[in-house]
Design a protein around this nucleic acid. Structure first.
Lengths: 391, 391
DNA sequence: CTGTTAGCGCCTTCAA
DNA sequence: TTGAAGGCGCTAACAG
């Protein structure tokens, strides 16, 4: 069907091995031979056969990126940043790697399916983005599959989700069953630094770029408390997700620190709307207003949800921020231009994605312990203000 | 390194050919044998080697998607829709295809590079989304590469860009040089319908799902004219792009039809801001207000740009829509929730992506002539209103 | 520096 | 219905 290495070799009057060497680079080839080969390649419009070379070299130049929803800029930004690392890392001779973006739709089964598919393609690395599903059974099978992947030499990077193992501190870790027969930890704690070697993790380690969701939500809630709000509603994202739980935990912690709400009140003011899209924000707000009309501020699971919150508030005849303050999370591009400008927490998505990409490519040394947490920043705009005097 | 077909065969007590047949499906295998094989597969946790099977079968299950900017929901939505077709088309036995999303950043060179990369991977199909760069040289090399791809059996689908060939009607087609030595048209006009066969295009055809950018812009401009606006600014997207040019053409055509503006005035009111992001909208508006303070309405290249327009207007102390009306294009999800709600033109991105995916997979018959144009719909919200009496 | 020689793991005739 | 055998196009020793 197509022109092969042998064709090029014949045309250039050399062996196919030589052609391969010219094309792969990193191997001494006489200048004259090299240019002859290159000319033959150009004349024949030869294109390497990826599958064949992957088979022979037992490696591929595919990098997988798992996202919950590619239509959501949150993931688009991260995916784009990861991918731009692939390009920048490649000089002329080294072939670019290709990003395979997989849309899980938030489904655990799909996540597993895509992982298998990527394993089949012998992907060089895989970046898993976004919050993880917390179901213990899924955790276990995910861990098992990742272990098999790393054992096969595939680099795994988690971006925007907590490290796989050990179970997160401060949670009901004991309730999570062991991950099956091969329960050896994927990431061993790194011993104390001992020179340069300390930065090198065992092969098979799962690296993590984590977001400080808890801290961000804490900061946001404190901001509202400082403004004088005491009835703060919270529209939570999909349940059973690390991101959702951490943000909510930060919120509740800040509330508790201020003695601002007993657990019962916090619960009444928390609506689980079930998703990360604007309609969840809308519906959640309708329910919240019904449940707790005294609400003077609403924290949304993310910026997109916050947009829905604002819409619901407007439709209910409430002004933002005069009647009700609203805040989001993530600081997606549109948040700056919303009217009013959305107070939110900025997560350095771009940078996190770039780091994850570098870790996946091995362009960047692994952080000590295998986990980096990127900082958050409170961004105060005009959607939050002190509550009305009468409230 | 990994479990191979032979291992499975040994374990199941059959030949590797049999295992292959069980796994590939579509070949008669005794029930008992089949289940024995399947059990061995499960016990060994066998995963097919993609590269190896691609090499042997001379086909791969990769589908490429080229986008200008994956962080832009416009592309995210399309890419997601394409990908969802991949999933739905796969029953248990047929392996899912994997989507390779490539971010060109709008760069023609990268577009070509990615095409080569995908050719190397022997991608089964490629969907090119978004407006095309109009530079004749690039057009030619793009056409050449696509021709080679289709010749190799890769299906090509254009989504949201005009058909490749023949050159678009009503343009300076003669100025575009022929596409090199192999200038045979990629898509031949289909002869008149002759039963079912009429829907079948020649192998190697490039299929297209086009947007009616011209019609949409026309409708939008008419809407503003009908409201009474006579000084309508236009913030255009990046130049040399089909999308930009078509939208602008529709706008100007509507203006001309109403006799609303001579070409000189239209030119003064048109700002080429150079991109599709909000900052272009902002900067473009600043320039527009300076150039033509009498402006009572602004049409933006797309919704994202429109957000920037609104911001600039607000910062200039102008209210939307009381002082200036604003309209976008695309009807991205956030547009409904903007304040005020954005008047725009809805493009069925989801549906277009799904169609493109189906065409790429061959799940859907090719449309007559190879091109479908999806409809647009004017969506009137509150960002447009009649001009003030004084204006 | 370059050619020769084996495979990589799977699919696919061809026989049985 | 199943097995045996060759080859897909390339890379990676190993000689020369």
């Amino acid at each position: 069907m197509a022109v092969t290495l042998a064709d090029v070799a014949a045309r250039a009057g050399v062996s196919s091995a030589t052609v391969s060497r010219v094309l792969s680079g990193g191997y001494p080839v006489a200048g004259a031979t090299r240019s002859r080969v290159l000319r033959a390649v150009a004349e024949l419009e030869y294109v390497v056969d990826g599958p064949a070379s992957a088979l022979a070299a037992a490696s591929s130049d595919l990098l997988g990126i798992l996202v919950n929803d590619i239509a959501d800029p949150f993931f688009g930004i991260i995916a784009g940043a990861v991918q731009s690392e692939l390009d920048s890392g490649a000089d002329a001779s080294v072939p670019h790697k290709l990003a395979v973006v997989c849309n899980t739709g938030g489904s655990p089964e799909r996540e597993l399916t895509y992982l298998t598919l990527l394993q089949r393609q012998r992907a060089a690395a895989i970046v898993l983005t976004g919050g993880a599903v917390e179901d213990p059974a899924h955790r276990a099978s995910l861990a098992a599959r990742l272990r098999r992947l790393t054992a096969g030499g595939t680099r795994i990077v988690l971006c925007g989700r907590p490290p796989l193992d050990p179970p997160e501190p401060g949670t009901e870790a004991a309730a999570v069953p062991e991950a099956g027969p091969v329960a050896e930890p994927a990431v061993r704690p790194v011993p104390a630094a001992r020179g340069r070697g300390a930065r090198r993790l065992a092969r098979g380690a799962v690296l993590t770029v984590a977001f400080d969701n808890r801290g961000g939500a804490h900061a946001l809630t404190e901001h509202l408390l400082t403004l004088g709000h005491r009835h703060i509603g919270y529209i939570a994202g999909p349940s059973e997700r690390t991101t959702t739980r951490h943000r909510l935990a930060g919120h509740l912690a800040a509330l508790a620190a201020h003695g601002a709400a007993g657990p019962d009140r916090a619960e009444r003011l928390t609506v689980h709307a079930g998703g990360y899209d604007r309609s969840c924000g809308y519906r959640g707000t309708v329910e919240l207003l019904c449940r707790a009309p005294e609400t003077t501020a609403v924290l949304a699971a993310n910026d997109t949800v916050a947009l829905g919150v604002c819409a619901a508030l407007r439709d209910a005849g409430l002004r933002v921020p005069q009647d009700v303050s609203v805040a989001g999370f993530d600081d997606l591009p549109f948040s700056a231009d919303a009217a009013p400008g959305l107070t939110t927490v900025r997560l350095p998505l771009q940078e996190a994605g770039a780091r994850a990409g570098q870790l996946a490519l091995g362009t960047r040394p692994a952080p000590p312990g295998g986990t980096t947490t990127v900082p958050h920043a409170l961004v105060v705009r005009t959607s939050t203000a002190p509550p009305r005097a009468g409230a």
